[in-house]
Amino acid sequence: MELNRRKFTNMLIGGGLLGWLASVLYPLFTYLIPPRVEEQSLNSVKAGKVDDFPPNSGKIIKFGRKPVLLIRTETGDFRAFSATCTHLDCIVQYREDTKHIWCACHNGMFDLTGKNIAGPPPRPLMPYGVRVQKNEIIIEKPTNLG
């Protein structure tokens, strides 16, 4: 009887301890596993493979919390600009027919250097840096522009 009680207590402690350890260690180890999303580096972002972008095309890339328009010109080089229109914050797009950057909201136009050339936008689009490394396109925050 006495022995059984003691056995029960030890089991209770053992079981409790195991469960407790599990409930402490589980969050701990999952915390240490690197999250699937790579830590968002604030100064550059990978946009994809060069082959995914045919010449004369554009695509919106999420640069952290800011949309960036990545353009591959007809001649094949890459350019990137802030995709936020300087007029009323709409998202601009690349137009394959006119080969311009275009904002659908008010028909604002920018040339391929980001300069505002028609419609209401008051300022050029801020350029981002583009680097190609081992067939991978990397968009960079322009350091000289702050």
Binding site: P27, L28, T30, Y31, I33, P35, E39, Q40, L42, G64
Partner: peptide, 21 residues
């Protein structure tokens, strides 16, 4: 100044149990 808040947000939203720790 650019990373303190952002890295903590990353910890809270993307790291499992980051919020708990």
């Amino acid at each position: 100044p650019d990373s303190s808040y952002e890295s903590l947000r990353f910890l809270l939203t993307k790291v499992r149990f980051g919020w708990l720790i």
